[in-house]
Design a protein around this nucleic acid. Structure first.
Lengths: 144, 144
DNA sequence: GGCGCTCGTCCACCACAGTGGACGCCATTT
DNA sequence: AAATGGCGTCCACTGTGGTGGACGAGCGCC
């Protein structure tokens, strides 16, 4: 995990609004607007597939702005790691309900969070059991 | 102090080994070696004087390496800040309890999440009230 | 089935990022 | 004062970063 292509690919697969990946055209159009210059979908594709790997500052800025990531993500590897972990969590937060829950939880104090965690544990255990009952035997594995 | 030229100029004037500034030729030669590709003194000059302002990733990397600064230095810092604030959700998730809650919530189905959201609403409302009592008067406003 | 739409892939071209080399200036050196 | 050498500046060219448009595959719709 060090090439530019891999990093860009990671952005595509982790940052997706409706479960679906952004199309190259969408990214290009948005980036063009962000940078005030042109940005072709072809080039986005080339960058992701590693056919081009030496974009200009302007292109990197636009891409970074679009994916809401610091431009440093494309360079330094240690910041890359940090961003990646944040990205993983962010992808878990795709679901609006989950996000809402998390935001509320964030505003609570430690005591509140702990008791909330206990409650959730109960609820999810309950759910697991009922699920195991309905579709017999299929263990509930974490999705994606 | 926002243009690339100004930033590069600052590197020249501040980073100088023997009181004397690096010559364009010296920088170019060193950068060429660092990047493994070519790097002309003319281009260094053009970048510093603002005649060119859209270098490629490879050139930025070489320049950053030569002057011993992170590549992020060449990009707009306020954008980086803005990005960080927009990743507020992710940063909120640094709290282990919150993360745990969100991860559990993620595994639940829609019904579970909705009832969970209701429960949390109750709990946090309870908390808000008690908080309002202690530091009297200040209403807790909803974010975003 | 046939039509229209969107998307990913590919290629031939264009513009500009990046280069090489020439020129002139200012210090040293003799 | 003439010669040498290092440096910044400039310009015309080249290579490649970047683009537009064409083509075909997949999918929903009438």
């Amino acid at each position: 995990m060090s090439s530019l292509a891999e990093k860009i690919d990671k952005l595509f697969t982790t940052i997706r609004p409706n479960g679906r990946e952004y199309s190259y055209e969408k990214v290009a159009a948005e980036c063009a607007q962000l940078s005030g210059s042109t940005f072709s979908k072809t080039y986005v594709w080339q960058l992701r597939t590693g056919q081009r790997d030496n974009p200009t500052k302007r292109h990197l800025e636009a891409l970074a702005a679009f994916f809401r990531v610091p431009a440093a993500y494309f360079f330094d590897d240690c910041t890359t790691e940090r961003i990646d972990s944040q990205l993983a969590i962010a992808s878990a937060m795709r679901n609006a309900d989950v996000r809402d829950i998390a935001l509320r939880a964030m505003r609570m104090d430690d005591n509140g969070r702990r008791s909330l965690a206990r409650i959730i544990q109960e609820v999810s255990a309950l759910q697991d059991r009922s699920r195991a009952d309905t579709h017999r035997g299929r263990p509930v594995d974490a999705e994606e």
